[in-house]
Every structure is written in structure tokens, then in C-alpha cells.
Design a protein around this nucleic acid. Sequence first.
DNA 1: GGCATCCTACTACAACTGTCGTAGCCTGTC
DNA 2: GACAGGCTACGACAGTTGTAGTAGGATGCC
Lengths: 125, 125
Amino acid sequence: MPKDHDLSEAELAVLRVLWDHGPQTVREVMERLHERGRRVAYTTVLTFLSRLEQKGVAASDKDGTAYVYRSKVSRQSVTRSRVRTLLDQLYDGAAAPMVVHLIESERFSEDEIAQLRRLIKDLDA
Amino acid sequence: MPKDHDLSEAELAVLRVLWDHGPQTVREVMERLHERGRRVAYTTVLTFLSRLEQKGVAASDKDGTAYVYRSKVSRQSVTRSRVRTLLDQLYDGAAAPMVVHLIESERFSEDEIAQLRRLIKDLDA
DNA sequence: GGCATCCTACTACAACTGTCGTAGCCTGTC
DNA sequence: GACAGGCTACGACAGTTGTAGTAGGATGCC
């Protein structure tokens, strides 16, 4: 059992940088966060990366003078666990009401609609 | 703007009791939570209800000796904001990938599938 | 009218979160 | 070989969250 990942919002934002751009140094991660509008200090990023490592969801390898951090968990698995949590909190775990909610309250492009239609079609196949 | 409700997990659990069973006293809310397997002390429930009131999402009216608490926000609106937050955190705000994820990873009953099919059909109408 | 109850108000407190600052260690460059 | 600049290690600190204890007022029952 991969243990339920329990990540805070800010930690998740850092992890996303690793997913989106691969292994990186603290400085690089900080720059990515800045690009995304998150104005955090260098040491703050370092703190988050350390905490992620402590929680077992990231790891680091020394490269010369600096450490390069990388994610140890897939975006898929974290997504799964977070969606599940939300489902439990709001709909007692049922997925359908959430899908209904999303379809009713969000806008989709032509392509997305086509994709969804295809998925639904295959559902009971 | 109804201000972004920022509720913690335990606070949400308490709010759900109000949604599911209508206005209630502290003691009643506590009993509902116990039924749901949440073993919390009376004063703990009181604390949460007070915090919910402070945050403006619940209100109380004195009934004889005790206060009766009620929710001031709809389940719909809280759901909307939480789903939105999750979407932002995981998919940069896009809803389609979440729908895809749900459809691919969860199981649905015949009825649910029929309902989804209907919804999708009407999408671009 | 005194005691057991029940209710609220207030306080507490540890863990977790979001943010950094400072100290001290390398290392490349004159 | 001394200094500037980058890097990590640690500590700090206020705010939030989860959980509850205690004190003191009101009330119903004998």
C-alpha cells in the first residue's frame, strides 16, 4: 500500500513543478514557481522540497554542489487520491454526482465533447 | 461575490451534517457525527460550529436554553468552489481531464451511465 | 432551595503550514 | 589565498486545524 499521500496545497504546487519540468535544483524550481506567479523565497522552496522528501514523495541526488530533486510519485496516483478524498467529503464517495456537477457547471470545447461522448459510449462495452 | 469559502476537512464534515439533517443543536450534531464514525467530544463540535459561524457559513438562533445551528451556504456552492480548487491544483483549471479521469477510473451503474449519456447528448444543444 | 444536568464561553495546546532569516561550507576567480 | 556568490542546514514564528478541559450560568426535579 503506497500510503495515502497527504500533501498541502503549497507542497502540491512544488510537486507539480517537478512533474511538469522533470528533476531540478532548488533554484530552478523557485524560478518555475515565480513564472507561475508564486513569489516565494529560495529558502521557502528548499523547505517544501525537504518536506516532500521527508514525506517520501520526492527524492534528491547530489549533482556537484547542489541537490537535484525529483518526484517519486506519479501525477496519476496523487490525482486519484485527491479526487477520491473530495468525493468522500462531498458525495460520500460517489463519482457520478461529481461528473454530473462538472458537466453541468463547466464549459467544454467541441473536441472535449467529442472525447467525452466517445468515452461514455464505451462505458458498458 | 460570495467570497471563497475556506473550510477545513473537519469543518466540512460538520457542515455536511447541517445540510443532511437541517438545523440542529450542538448535541444533535455531535450524535450525527458519532453515527458517521467520528468520535468527537461535545466541546469539539461546539468549537467547529463556532468557527463555522465566525467564517460566516453558519448561523445560530437561540431556542430556549440552547442554540440551534443552521448552514448559511448551499452544498452546491461549496461543492463548486472545492471542485474548482481541485481543478486548479491538478489540471490548471481544466474540467475535461477531470471528467475523463473520473469516467476512466470509477465504476457506474446502468442508471448513472444512462444519465451521463443524456447529459452529454444535450451538451452542445 | 439544593443538587444534578445541560449549555455556552473561554482557554489551551500540539501538529501542521506557509514563510523566511542566518550561519556556515564550498568553489571559482583574480 | 582571499572574496563573492551559491548552496544546504537549522531554527523560528505566526496562523490554522483538530481536539478537548474547565468554569460558571440556567433549569428541572424532589
